[in-house]
Structures are given as C-alpha cells and as structure tokens.
Computed example of a mutant assay.
Amino acid sequence: MEEIIQRANQRQKIALGILNKLDLIKKWGEVGEVHLVGATAYNLMVSHDIDIETFCDIPSPENVFKVLGDLATHRGVVEIKFHNYLNSPFRGLYSKLTYLDADHDEGTQWNLDMWLFPSNHNGPLSRDLVGFMDKALSDRSRKSILGIKEHLVKLELNYPSVFIYRAVLVDGIEGIHHFLEWMNNQDVNEPFKLEKLGKVER
C-alpha cells in the first residue's frame, strides 16, 4: 500500500510543477485571493486534474481573460474554455485549461479547472474543505481514499470525490466493495454539507 502513497506524491509533484511552469498562482494572485483546492491540495490525486478557486470583490470576464490571454501562448496549453455563470446559482466565472505535459508519461493530458468567485460568495466552496481535510486525514484514511479512487478509475465509474471523503472519514468505509454498497444509499444530488467533515478529528 505504500506504493499508492508514492503514486499520489508523484502526481502532486507533477501538478505543482505544472502550476509553476504556467506561473498560475501568481497570475490569479494579480486578480484576487487564490486557493489551490481539491485533490491537489489534499495530496489525494489519482486523476490528472488541478483545481483553483480565486476570489475578488467584483469578478468580471476581463479579469479572467487577463489570465487566459497570457496562458494561451504557452506551448503546453492546447485548449482553453470559458463559461460565465455569474447569473446562475454558481455565481462565478469558470475557465478550463487543457495542458499537455511533454515531460512525463509521454505527454499526459492535464485538466485545470479554475473558478473566479466574488469575495462574498456564500455557497459551497472547495476552499472551505481544505482545513477540514488537513485535520481529518491520517495515513490510513489517505490510503483508503486513494485505493477507492484508483479502483473507480479501473471500473470506469465516476463519483464526486466529496462522497469518497465522507464515506471514509465520516462513516469509516474501507475498500471499493464497501464503498459501492455505501453509495447505493446516497443521493448524489444532495449538496455536500461541510459540517459533516468538520466534526472529524484526526
């Protein structure tokens, strides 16, 4: 099982290297307050996905394209998408960057999901999970989560990661079979409640 931690460590190292190559944290930092979130922040990476949330007083498309314009000329960037969700319940601006990593694994494709939110955003945010995850994770629970994630990839099944975290950290689920049984009783459309992880102690 130590190999599963090593694989996650290696993915995180590559992810942080990509962020450094693109100078992404600095670029978003010129727009607002930047937070690296999701599996990269928790060191629970299995998929090649990196998530960033940025907060500023008044988000605008101009803010986003100031960043995207610089990124478009980078040799590793092969696709950029943008969607304005300010007038939806998401209340944010979403952009997605596809990066082809020529330095590892014969050009692995990485997806970078980036949100720009207003500073007073009051909906569910990945930013608010980082502190709880840091407190809740142990070596055992980290291995359990990574094991479930890797098995789901092999089975070509996709569930929101927050359900995996809740299953392991709150309900003590271990192993892919127990997780799939547990998921049969979950509503994947139910909003994730932060306090369910906030009660967990390391």
Results as ranks from 00 to 15, higher is better:
Pro61Tyr: 06
Val31His: 03
Leu68Phe: 09
Glu79Asn: 15
Gly32Leu: 02
Leu19Ser: 04
Lys27Trp: 06
Ser47Leu: 08
Phe55Ser: 06
Lys81Asp: 07
Lys27Asp: 07
Gly29Lys: 00
Lys27Glu: 13
Lys26Leu: 08
Glu53Val: 05
Asn20Val: 03
Leu68Gly: 06
Ile58Pro: 03
Pro59Asn: 04
Thr54Glu: 03
Ala72Cys: 05
Ile18Arg: 05
Pro61Glu: 08
Val31Trp: 00
Thr73Pro: 03
Ile18Cys: 12
Val77Ile: 08
Leu24Pro: 00
Ile52Arg: 10
His74Lys: 09
Leu36Val: 15
Lys66Leu: 13
Lys66Cys: 13
Cys56Ile: 11
Lys21Gln: 14
Asp49Cys: 05
Leu22Met: 12
Asn20Gln: 14
Ile52Lys: 05
Val77Gln: 14
Asp23His: 06
Ser60Arg: 15
Ile50Ala: 04
Glu62His: 11
Ile18Met: 07
Glu30Gly: 10
Asn20Arg: 14
Leu44Val: 01
Glu79Val: 04
Trp28Ile: 07
Thr73His: 11
Ile25His: 05
Trp28Leu: 14
Ile58Phe: 10
Glu33Ser: 07
Ser60Leu: 09
Lys66Ile: 10
Thr73Val: 14
Lys26Arg: 15
Glu30Ser: 14
Asn63His: 14
Val37Gln: 00
Lys66Thr: 15
Leu22Trp: 08
Val34Ala: 01
Asp23Glu: 08
Arg75Gln: 10
Tyr42Asp: 11
Leu68Lys: 01
His74Ser: 06
Asn63Gly: 09
Leu44Pro: 01
Glu62Ser: 13
Val77Trp: 04
Leu68Cys: 01
Ala41Pro: 05
